[in-house]
Nucleic acid binder design. Structure first.
Length: 798
RNA sequence: GCGCCCGUAGCUCAGUUGGUUAGAGCGCGUCGCUGAUAACGACGAGGUCCGUGGUUCGAAUCCACGCGGGCGCACCA
């Protein structure tokens, strides 16, 4: 009778014998066959071979304590707990495929022998049965030689028993748990100890391994267990050491051999890996109709099939449900790098991560596409200007280090280049150091954040602020050549930096930037990893440029709030700094901010200013330990006095004296923090380091300049729509009805022509009717809210 | 049942030894830029940091309990 059908007869029998005390249904988890999921499994005891790992528990714990686990809690936590409650390793499997257990049993006495190798087996007296293999091999010569130690051939090999005359030794039927094979990887990969001794000893233990958390009891344990048993300290002596040849229970003392038996090689803990990065599990994201009957991989598919009648689901990936997109499709559609970057750059690796098509796709623009855009900007203008970079060099190159590039004739030392160039190279060097440092700590997530911040700085500040240099007409100007060399070097080093993260993008960039040069390394993956030794990190410059970026950002925010578009020039910006230490430098570099914010003038102050209010706050981190419970009162006491007065007191006396509950408390400069806030009524924005206030008054001059800028934008837009080449020269004719517009265009004629590569700019004043009713195919545009017409003719190339 | 981990914006996630106004990307909204352009930028809305209690001058962060989820608990790789 099938076991599952026995429940009823058993119950009945118990009841008949009056032994049934209580009967109920109890819902619980139950194992089912992982292949035929309808088949319930039953468990019952079988005889089995074990390794007495419990003898090594303390050694394994000691070894474990030396391993660098990421995240740290795995070591003492999940893995440590597992080791503490270690039970003997059930080694044997009753299967066909697997490494045969090398134990031969005497058919008469049941005594056993472990055989070291196939060679040893062949030396045994009266060995027989090897012909099964040789016949099979003769019949099928393509059989791999290794198979001779496997089933069924090995099972045919027997020999004379040393325990009983006339008896034969026959192999046991079991194979070894394949986790044993996995755990033997550090040794078996070199064939150690039979061969590969040198390779093994030079590479053992591994710096790090990585797998997901489900391997705690798998690969992580099997490696640690086997390695500790081989190279660990001597085990606790087992009280059953004589059990090695007793058949009942089959508790073989495979592990009772002295730990260093055949090995003169010994190592300190930890081994066989020094660090282990434990990854989270990958979860699926899919969409289901509300009745649960239909499944979709994208929101779009779900919507087009069932309207809004669906729900988003996340959970385990399942082959049966097929609730994930095939990796091959992801590779084909978005590239393997998109998936890699998504996995690296989106969270700490030990968290579980959603394998989400949408999330993978969305991770592309911020980093990879932005970097590619910078590269494409570089190539467009380098080609126009004929910048060849390292192709200038005479003779072969190697991996294009700064020291090699420096030999090019037009390459100038970094110190001689502009501040912006020195800044981005300083940021690049800092990024190299940061990435290396983070990778040394196995912090790939932090490394990616660092890379992302650099590419952002490169794209949204360096290239943006350098554009005029690339566009200038003097192809050989030092500034322009410097700009190309700087950007080239940034791209080159970034290419090397991203190689481990996005290897295909990296290689594609390398092929464009470097390949073709004589002697150059054929792949970026053959280059050394950048350490940032080509430049100093200038922390002061980085800080100052950061401040400049913040001022620009606050200025844009203030414009936004006052609804003043950046194209409308303004006369003046007031910047009030919390700390005046960089004021002079900022003032000397205000051309960048003037252009960025489109203002004529910038004024920096760090003292009192009509645009801001000050507040003085306690430095909690410093004062907390000192004043403790008085802190709340100190806080409100500071808040009740005007910030300006407190600051005066601080400048006059170098300290602020407060009376709290009859106690006198002195605060020095370190004990307080000054905060600025923009006063109401100004077009101003506040940040952590400064307040930026705009003068919003528009003079006729400013309005005219604004109109000219509008006109330039319209022309550039038209150039693009007419598919002009970047270098095409054009002729322009404006028909306008508003005299103010006419004046603005005429006054700024040279400016407009220069910005748009126009050879001529003609402006005609017409009646409004003529403009509105004109049947010409000229472009209809609007300038200063008044209709106008624009004609753009491309000049033939001469 | 036992153990470990997680719970922060609509979504996916950061958040250093407890410290002042909790951040990013995406999505959404508004606007800008326009010689990188089927690209890019800025700004904004949106948060009882799962809950309750505790420690502390101060808790997203530390402790306890609870709730929800994930994983493991030895022959499934």
């Amino acid at each position: 009778m099938w076991v599952k059908e026995a429940d009823k007869p058993i119950t009945r029998a118990l009841r008949e014998r009056a032994l049934l005390w209580h009967q109920e249904q109890y819902v619980h988890d139950y194992p089912f066959c992982w292949r035929a999921s309808e088949d319930p499994l039953i468990q019952y005891p079988r005889e089995s071979w074990f390794i007495r790992t419990t003898n090594f528990r303390d050694a394994m714990l000691e070894n474990n304590a030396k391993i660098g686990w990421l995240p740290e809690h795995i070591g003492p936590g999940r893995f440590g707990n597992f080791l503490e409650s270690n039970v003997d390793w059930a080694l044997s499997r009753e299967r066909y495929w697997g490494t045969p257990l090398p134990i031969w049993v005497c058919q008469a006495t049941g005594k056993m022998e472990a055989i070291d190798s196939y060679e040893e087996l062949l030396t045994k007296p009266g060995v027989a049965g090897t012909d099964v293999w040789s016949k099979a091999k003769a019949a099928n010569p393509s059989l791999a030689e290794d198979l001779k130690v496997h089933k069924p051939y090995i099972d045919a090999v027997s020999y004379d028993s040393p325990f009983a005359p006339g008896a034969r030794m026959q192999r046991v039927s079991e194979v070894i748990d394949c986790w044993y094979d996995s755990g033997a990887m550090p040794f078996a990969q070199w064939g150690y100890p039979h061969k590969g001794k040198e390779q093994f000893e030079s590479q053992f233990p591994a710096d790090f391994i990585s797998e997901a958390i489900d391997q705690t009891r798998g690969w992580f344990y099997s490696q640690l267990a086997i390695s500790t048993m081989l190279f660990g300290k001597s085990p606790v002596q087992s009280d059953t050491s004589s059990a090695s040849t007793s058949a009942p229970g089959k508790i073989a003392a495979l592990a009772n051999l002295p730990a260093t038996k055949d090995s003169e090689f010994s190592v300190e803990f930890p081994h066989p890996f020094k660090n282990c990065i434990v990854l989270g599990l990958m979860l699926a994201e899919w969409y289901e109709s509300k009745d649960g009957k239909q499944r979709f991989l994208t929101e779009e598919d779900a919507r087009s099939a069932v309207g809004s009648d669906f729900v988003q689901k996340t959970g385990k990936m399942s082959k049966q449900l097929r609730n994930y997109r095939s990796p091959q499709e992801i590779f084909d559609r978005y590239g393997a790098d998109a998936l890699r970057w998504y996995l690296f750059a989106n969270q700490a690796p030990w968290n579980s991560i959603l394998y989400s098509e949408r999330a993978i796709r969305d991770s592309i623009p911020e980093f990879m596409l932005r970097l590619w855009n910078v590269f494409s900007f570089f190539t467009i203008y380098a080609e126009i200007d004929g910048f060849v970079g390292p192709a200038e060099l005479q003779g072969p190159v190697d991996q294009l280090l700064a020291s090699e590039l420096a030999k090019a004739k037009s390459y100038r030392p970094i110190e001689e280049r502009s501040e912006l160039d020195r800044w981005i190279l300083s940021e690049l060097a800092a990024t190299c150091r940061d990435v290396v440092e983070r990778m040394d700590r196995y912090d790939s997530y932090g490394a990616c954040q660092s890379l992302n911040a650099f590419v952002d700085a490169l794209s949204n500040w360096y290239v943006r602020r350098s554009r005029s240099r690339y566009w200038s007409s003097d192809k050989q100007s030092t500034e322009k050549i410097d700009a190309y060399w700087t950007l080239y070097e940034c791209l080159l080093v970034t290419t090397k930096l991203i190689a481990p993260f996005t290897p295909f993008l990296s290689e594609a960039l390398w092929q464009h930037l470097a390949i073709g040069l004589p002697g150059v390394r054929a792949s970026v993956h053959l280059c050394d990893y950048p350490t940032g030794d080509f430049a100093q990190t200038d922390h002061t410059l980085n800080e100052r440029m950061g401040l400049l970026r913040q001022i620009a950002s606050l200025g844009r925010s203030a414009r936004m709030e006052s609804k003043l578009k950046v194209r409308q020039p303004l006369s003046r910006v007031e910047v009030t700094l919390v700390d005046g230490v960089h004021a002079q430098w900022l003032a000397a570099h205000d051309d960048i901010v003037r252009e960025e914010l489109n203002v004529k003038e910038i004024h920096y102050t760090s003292g009192s200013s009509p645009f801001v209010t000050y507040s003085v706050l306690p430095n909690l981190r410093k004062l907390g330990p000192r004043v403790g419970p008085l802190l709340p009162k100190l806080k409100s006491s500071l808040a009740s006095v005007s910030g300006a007065r407190l600051m005066d007191e601080m400048t006059r006396n170098g300290k602020i004296v407060l009376d709290i509950d009859g106690k006198t408390i002195e605060l020095d400069g370190e004990d307080i923090q000054v905060r600025l806030a923009a006063k109401d009524g100004w077009a101003a924005s506040q940040g952590s380091a400064c307040v930026v206030a705009l003068n919003t008054e528009l003079t006729p001059d400013l309005i005219r300049d604004g109109i000219a800028k509008d006109a330039i934008r319209l022309i550039q837009d038209l150039r693009k729509r007419k598919a002009c080449n970047y270098t095409d020269r054009i002729d322009l004719v404006f028909l306008v009805s508003d005299p103010q517009v006419e004046e603005a265009l005429v006054t700024n004629r040279d400016f407009i022509a220069g910005e748009t590569l126009a050879q001529s700019v003609t402006v005609q004043l017409e009646s409004l009717e003529n403009i509105t009713n004109s049947t010409s195919d000229w472009e209809s545009v609007e300038l200063a809210d008044s209709p106008a017409r624009l004609s753009l003719q491309v000049r033939p190339v001469q």
